[in-house]
Amino acid sequence: SEIVKHAEEALERGEFVRIEHNGRVIEIRNEEALEELRRWVEK
């Protein structure tokens, strides 16, 4: 997914991403959060 790709690229640069999706906000700061995002987006 485009969202996950964006988050992965930001993590590689040492940045973090805040994503709003279906009214929820998730902050991607590490691999664990990235995995959570993947599960969340796939639903």
Rank of each mutant, 00 (worst) to 15 (best):
E42S: 11
A33Q: 15
V17S: 05
R13P: 00
L37Q: 00
V17G: 03
E32M: 10
H21Y: 15
E31F: 14
G14N: 05
R38Q: 05
I28K: 00
E27Y: 13
V17Y: 12
I28N: 00
E12M: 15
L11D: 01
E20S: 09
V17W: 07
E32A: 13
E32K: 11
I19Y: 08
R13Y: 02
H6Q: 14
E32H: 10
F16T: 11
I19R: 00
K43M: 14
I28Y: 01
E36L: 10
I3D: 04
G23Q: 03
E42V: 08
E2W: 15
E32I: 08
V4A: 04
E12R: 15
E27D: 11
L34P: 00
R24A: 08
A33D: 15
R13C: 04
V25F: 10
W40T: 03
L11A: 01
F16D: 03
E20N: 08
H6V: 13
E27H: 10
S1P: 12
R38K: 12
G23R: 00
E15S: 09
S1G: 10
R24G: 05
R18G: 03
R18A: 10
A7T: 03
E2Q: 13
R24C: 09
E42P: 01
V41F: 14
E20C: 13
E9S: 10
S1C: 10
E15P: 00
E2C: 14
I3T: 06
V4R: 02
R24S: 08
I26D: 01
E20H: 11
I3E: 03
F16R: 05
L34D: 01
W40H: 05
W40F: 06
K5I: 06
R13V: 03
R29G: 08
A7K: 00
I28C: 03
R18E: 08
R38E: 02
V41S: 04
L34E: 01
A10P: 01
E35A: 11
L37I: 04
E32W: 11
I19T: 03
A7E: 01
K5S: 06
W40N: 03
I19E: 01
G14C: 06
K5L: 07
K43D: 12
K5H: 07
R39F: 09
R18C: 12
S1Q: 14
F16P: 06
G14W: 02
I3A: 07
K5V: 06
I3H: 05
V4S: 02
L34R: 00
N30W: 03
E9Q: 13
E27F: 13
E9G: 07
E20I: 14
G23P: 00
H21I: 15
V17F: 12
E31T: 12
V4Q: 02
H6R: 15
I28E: 00
R13G: 03
R24E: 08
R29S: 11
R39Y: 10
N22P: 01
I3W: 12
H21Q: 05
E42Y: 11
R39E: 11
G23D: 05
E36R: 09
V41D: 02
R39G: 09
H21C: 08
R18V: 15
V4I: 15
N22T: 04
A10T: 04
V4Y: 09
R13A: 06
E8C: 09
N22F: 13
V4F: 10
E9D: 11
S1W: 15
W40G: 03
V4E: 01
G23H: 07
E8Y: 11
E9M: 12
I28L: 04
K43Y: 14
R39P: 01
G14F: 04
G14R: 03
I19Q: 01
V4N: 02
E27T: 09
E36A: 11
W40R: 04
F16W: 13
E27G: 02
R13Q: 05
V25Y: 09
W40D: 04
H21V: 15
N22Y: 12
A7W: 04
A10W: 05
R29V: 15
G14P: 01
S1I: 13
A10D: 01
V41E: 03
E15R: 06
L11K: 01
E8K: 15
N22G: 10
L34I: 07
E2M: 13
L34G: 00
E32Y: 09
E12L: 15
E8I: 13
E20T: 11
R39Q: 14
A7P: 01
E35N: 10
K43V: 12
E8N: 06
R38P: 01
G14L: 04
K43H: 13
W40S: 04
I28H: 00
L11P: 01
E31Y: 15
R18P: 02
A10Y: 06
V25T: 09
E12W: 12
L34Y: 01
L34N: 00
V17I: 14
A10V: 05
L37K: 00
H21S: 07
R18W: 13
H6A: 15
L34M: 06
A10L: 08
A10I: 05
I26F: 15
E42G: 09
E9P: 00
G14H: 06
V4L: 15
V41T: 05
H6S: 10
I3C: 08
R38D: 02
R39A: 14
H21E: 03
I26V: 08
I28F: 02
L11Q: 01
R13T: 03
E31A: 14
A7D: 02
H6K: 15
G14S: 04
E42M: 11
N30K: 02
E12Y: 12
E36K: 09
K5W: 05
I28A: 01
E20W: 14
R29M: 12
E36P: 00
V25S: 05
L37C: 05
R18N: 07
V41Y: 09
I19F: 10
R38L: 06
H21F: 15
G14M: 04
R13K: 09
S1V: 12
R39W: 10
V17H: 05
R38I: 09
V25M: 07
L37E: 00
L11R: 02
E36S: 07
N22M: 14
N30S: 12
E35M: 08
R13S: 05
R24L: 14
E36I: 10
L37H: 00
W40P: 02
E9R: 11
F16Q: 07
I26T: 04
A33T: 12
I26R: 01
